[in-house]
Amino acid sequence: MTSNPVSGTRLGLALPQYGALADPAAVARFAVAAEGLGFASLWVGDRILTPLEPSDLYPGGGTPEHPYPEEFTTFADPFTTLATAAAVTSTVRLGMSALTGPVYSPVLLARALTSLDLASAGRLDVGLGLGWLREEYFATGVPWEDRGRRLDEVLDALEAIWTGDPVSHEGPQWRIAPSTVGLRPAQDPRPPVLLAGFAPPALARIGRRADGWLAGWMPRPYLKSLWTVALETAEKAGRDPGTLRRVLRINPRAGTGVESVADVLPCLDVAREEGIAEVLVDLHYVAKDVDHALELAGELAS
């Protein structure tokens, strides 16, 4: 990464996907420009719907009056957005931060992810989480209860599809009859799997079976204590804790103390001091449109 404001830290950007930046026709232009500026990765999120009276408040600062950011009401498809970026770039990593894993059929999800990994010549990072909005589960016909166990089974099924020959899976939610699946990921044996989460059980799952943590900006002691859970669990599971990655997401937003590109720089210093090598900056909350987002990205890169 040639235009790195913090030595040793790889910077990524959220692709224009929601709110005022939700312009699928502009994704290719944005991706090319971001790669040209030296950013190391490009990311998408996942929002299925925004109910008028949601059962749950957005954990990143939702209130009864404003249960989620207004930007969430317009959200482009993550797979289409990432595929567009894959087609016009050659070096950036491409990832999800994060798909709501339990609402997807693992067979269909594996097909889409494998196709993306092949289309990008092995540049895909698969990011999965539990989400926070139960109406999204109801709308997709998936029970809200036992969503953690459902995510574990999604991970089991993805692993089987990516590495088995023939492929088969038998679980409480899905049964995959022994089958031939000729489509294989470009990355061997599979794309890296990163998991989101902000509670000890989520970090324990990362330590047991994932390649890294999709972290969000949080008080430094909490960031440290959660990461310790992942490292200790990995060691107990006989895995090398040193192989686990962290991608720290920073959402500059009015009222958070991080409201401009300049305010992001101290966050990058914290990331460096904590040994976090990858930072994702999401400009959706501060950019007026795609062109403005590119201007801000240029400031961040320089």
Rank of each mutant, 00 (worst) to 15 (best):
A98L: 15
A112T: 14
R93W: 09
V88S: 11
P102Q: 08
V103A: 13
A86Q: 01
A112S: 10
M96D: 11
R111C: 07
L113F: 10
A98I: 15
V107M: 12
A87G: 08
T114C: 06
Y104D: 11
S105K: 04
T100H: 02
S97E: 04
A98T: 15
T114H: 05
G101W: 11
L109D: 14
R111T: 13
A110Q: 00
P102V: 14
P102F: 12
A98N: 07
S90I: 00
Y104P: 09
V92Y: 00
A110D: 10
A86L: 04
G95D: 04
S90P: 01
S105T: 02
P106D: 14
S90D: 14
A86C: 10
V103M: 08
T91P: 01
L94S: 05
L94R: 03
L109C: 12
M96L: 14
R111M: 05
P106W: 10
A110E: 06
A87H: 04
R111G: 12
G101K: 03
S97L: 15
A86P: 05
A112Q: 15
A86I: 09
T89E: 06
P106E: 14
V88E: 05
M96K: 00
V103D: 11
A110P: 12
G95V: 07
R111K: 15
L94G: 05
L113E: 00
T89I: 08
A98G: 01
T91E: 06
P102D: 13
R93G: 13
T100N: 13
D117R: 04
S97Q: 13
V88A: 09
G95N: 04
R111N: 10
T114Q: 02
T100W: 00
D117H: 03
L99M: 11
L109K: 07
G101H: 10
T89A: 08
L109S: 08
T89F: 00
S90F: 00
L109F: 14
T91A: 10
L109Y: 07
R93Y: 02
V88Q: 06
A110S: 14
G95E: 10
T91D: 14
A87L: 09
L108C: 04
V103E: 12
A110I: 07
S115D: 13
P102R: 03
L113S: 06
S105N: 15
T100F: 01
S97G: 10
S115R: 03
L109T: 12
L99W: 00
S115G: 08
G101Y: 11
G101D: 09
L109E: 14
P102K: 01
A98K: 04
G101M: 12
M96V: 14
R111S: 13
V107T: 15
D117F: 08
A86N: 03
L99F: 00
V107F: 13
A98E: 05
P102C: 11
V103W: 03
S105P: 13
S90C: 06
S115V: 09
V88F: 02
L108N: 08
L108W: 12
V103S: 07
V107D: 09
Y104Q: 07
S105F: 07
V107K: 01
P106V: 09
Y104L: 07
L108F: 10
S97A: 15
T91L: 06
A98W: 05
V88G: 02
D117E: 05
D117P: 08
L99H: 04
L94F: 01
M96Q: 12
S105Q: 09
L108A: 14
T91F: 00
G95Y: 01
L116H: 10
